[in-house]
C-alpha cells in the first residue's frame, strides 16, 4: 500500500520539478553578450572574441562580426581582423581604414589609403580626402589648412567647434614645471593643473624643513639630519613629480581632444558603414 502511494509521488515530484524549473540562463545569448562586454572592458579581448564568436554562430549579425574584429585587432591579430571585416563589407577598405584609425596605427592606414588612391576609384578618392581631413583634424602639432578639414565632414558646425577647441589647446612644458617647483615647492604642480598636489608638496616639504631647522637650533643633530634627509627626499620627489605632471597634463589634453573627434565621427557616421555603427 505504501509503495503504491510513494512511487507515483516520487515520479510526480520529479516531473513537476522538470516542468517548472527554468533552464540555467548562463549560456543564453544576453548573458553571454554581457559577459563578453565585461571581458572586453576588463582588458581580455581574446576571451571576449571567443564569447562573441559563439553568439555569432547562433545569431549571426554584422555588428557582432565587427566587434569580434575589434577584439582581434586589440591583440594585434590583424590578419584575422581584416578577414572578418572583408567578410562583412562590400567596401572593405572603408572599414579597414576606419579600424586602423581607431587603433592609431597610422602607417598601415596610410598604406591602405595609397592603394585606394592608386586604384583611382571615385569612392576611394573621396574617402582618401575624408581620411586626409580627419588626419589633419586629429593632428595637434601642425597647422593644417581648414578647408581640407571642412571638406571631409558633413556637419561643419561640429567641426568648427572642434577647430575652436583645438586652437585653445595649450601644452605644459615639463622644464618650466620643474623650474617653478625648484623655486617654490609645489608651484610647478599648480602650473600643471594639480593644485591639491602642489599645496601638499609645499606643506610636506615645508614641514620637514621646519623640523630640521628647529632641531639644528636645539642641537639635536640626529633628528636634525633625519629631517633634513626627509626634506631633501620630498623636495626632489616633488621636482620630479612636477615635470611628470606636465607630461600627464599634455597626455590628458590629447586624450580629451581625440575623444571629442571620435565622438563626432561616431555621431556623423562619416567613416564607418552603417551596418557596423552600433
Amino acid at each position: 500500500m505504501v509503495r503504491k502511494v510513494v512511487n507515483p509521488l516520487v515520479l510526480l515530484v520529479l516531473f513537476s520539478s522538470l516542468i517548472l524549473a527554468q533552464e540555467l540562463p548562463y549560456n543564453s545569448i544576453p548573458e553571454r553578450f554581457s559577459f563578453a562586454l565585461h571581458l572586453a572592458k576588463n582588458n581580455d579581448p581574446l576571451r571576449a572574441a571567443m564569447e562573441l564568436e559563439i553568439i555569432n554562430a547562433q545569431a549571426p549579425h554584422d555588428s557582432l562580426t565587427y566587434r569580434i574584429a575589434l577584439m582581434y585587432q586589440r591583440i594585434e591579430r590583424n590578419s584575422t581582423a581584416d578577414s572578418l571585416l572583408l567578410s562583412i563589407s562590400q567596401q572593405p577598405y572603408l572599414l579597414y581604414s576606419a579600424m586602423r584609425l581607431d587603433a592609431h596605427t597610422w602607417e598601415n592606414g596610410a598604406d591602405t589609403l595609397h592603394r585606394a588612391r592608386f586604384n583611382a576609384e571615385p569612392e576611394a578618392i573621396n574617402y582618401y580626402q575624408k581620411m586626409d581631413g580627419l588626419r589633419a583634424l586629429l593632428s595637434l602639432n601642425t597647422q593644417e589648412p581648414e578647408y581640407r578639414i571642412n571638406n571631409s565632414f558633413t556637419e561643419s558646425a561640429s567641426v568648427n567647434n572642434l577647430l575652436q577647441y583645438k586652437s585653445q589647446i595649450s601644452f605644459k612644458n615639463p622644464w618650466i614645471a620643474g623650474g617653478l617647483s625648484a623655486i617654490v615647492p609645489g608651484l610647478g604642480r599648480i602650473y600643471a593643473g594639480r593644485t591639491g598636489d602642489g599645496i601638499t608638496s609645499l606643506i610636506v616639504t615645508g614641514l620637514f624643513t621646519t623640523l630640521a631647522v628647529l632641531n639644528f637650533n636645539q642641537n639635536h643633530s640626529f633628528r636634525a639630519w633625519l629631517f633634513t634627509g626627509l626634506s631633501a627626499w620630498f623636495y626632489t620627489g616633488q621636482l620630479y613629480g612636477s615635470a611628470n605632471d606636465a607630461l600627464m597634463f599634455n597626455a590628458e589634453v590629447i586624450e580629451e581632444y581625440t575623444r571629442r573627434v571620435n565622438e563626432m565621427r561616431l555621431r556623423e557616421n562619416d567613416f564607418i558603414p552603417e551596418a557596423a555603427n552600433f
Binding site: 598636489d197 599645496i199 601638499t200 616633488q238 620630479y240
Partner: peptide, 13 residues
Amino acid sequence: LMMTSDRLIRDTN
C-alpha cells in the same frame, strides 16, 4: 626614490 616620494605626496593630498 623620487617617484616613491612623489607618490607619497600625491597619496597625502
